[in-house]
Design a protein around this nucleic acid. Sequence first.
DNA 1: CGTTCACTGGGCAATGTGTTCAGCCGTACG
DNA 2: CGTACGGCTGAACACATTGCCCAGTGAACG
Lengths: 156, 156
Amino acid sequence: MAIDHLDGRIIVLLAREPRIGVLEMSRRLGVARGTVQARLDRLQSNGVIRGFGPEVDPAALGYPVTAFATLQIRQGQGADVRAHLATVPEVLELHTTTGTGDMMCRLVARSNADLQRVIDRVVGFDGIVRASTAIVMENPVPLRIIPLVEQAALGE
Amino acid sequence: MAIDHLDGRIIVLLAREPRIGVLEMSRRLGVARGTVQARLDRLQSNGVIRGFGPEVDPAALGYPVTAFATLQIRQGQGADVRAHLATVPEVLELHTTTGTGDMMCRLVARSNADLQRVIDRVVGFDGIVRASTAIVMENPVPLRIIPLVEQAALGE
DNA sequence: CGTTCACTGGGCAATGTGTTCAGCCGTACG
DNA sequence: CGTACGGCTGAACACATTGCCCAGTGAACG
C-alpha cells in the first residue's frame, strides 16, 4: 500500500502519456519490462490505480455549466435521497458531508436556464429540505493527482 | 460536437472495460475496426474524450480523508490565491464560483488531524479571508459520466 | 548461512496496431 | 437527373507489443 519512487514515476508517466505501453515505459524508466508489468499489476490490485477510463468533458458533450449544490436532508431520508440522486444523469458526483449541509453534489447542465431544470429535478424530492447552489465560473485547477503522487512517492 | 448513438456506445464500452482494444471494440459493437478508430480519433480531437489517464485513489495512497473547502477571497487577490493553491499537492481541484464563497476546492489529507495541517497551509495565505470546510463521510455516487453520455447519445 | 523476494534480460507465440486500399451506399448539390 | 462527397466496410500488410515463461543475480531477513 505504500508507494515507492518507481511506482510514483510509473503513475506520473502514465498520467502524462496515457497511450504509452508497458514496453515503452520500461525503456523510459530504465527498468525491465517485467518490472513495470509487475508494478502495474500490484498498483491495480492494491486499488491505487482504479482504472483507465476515458476522461469525458461534459462541456464537449453539450453540458458546459457546472455547479455544486449543498443539500439539507430530512432526518432518516438519506438513503432515499441517495437513490433518487443516483437516477439523475446530470448528478456527476455525490458526497455526504459534515457541516451545514448534509450532502454535496456536482451538477452539470446545458445552460444556466437548464440548470434550473436540473435543480428542480434534484430537489423535487420529498426528503430534501433545502438546496444551495454555487455555479462554477472558472476551473483554475482541474482534477489532478500528480502532485499528490509525487509527494506520496518521495517522503511517503 | 454532437454525439451519436455509436459514439455513446464506444464511450460507455470504454468506460466499463478500459483495457479493451480497438479491435475487440469493433467486434463487440458489430462495426468495422476502421470505423471505431475513426470515431475515437474524432472524439479525441473534438475534446469529448480528454484522455485516458489512470484513476488514482487517494485513499490507497494514504490520504483517506476528503473535504470540500469554500473560500472567501480578498478583492483583487484571486490570481495570487489560485497560484498559491496550485502549489499545494493536497488541493486536488479548485473552482471559482458564484454564491457565498468565491472559490471551492477539494482537499485530501492523511487523517482528520492532518486535515488541520492542510487547511492551515491552504488558508495561511494573505488573500484568503475565510474558509469553511465540509468533511466527506460517504461517497454514494463516485464521479461518473456514463449516464450523461447515454443521455447525450440518445435524445441529444 | 539459507531462503525469499524483486529485478534482470532473454526468448517465444499470439495478438493488436497503424496504415492503406478498393468498393459500397446514402445524401447533398449542381 | 447525374455526380461528387463522406462515412462505412472488409481486407491486406509489416511491424510492434503483449502475455507468458525461464534462469540468473543481488539484497534483505530470519
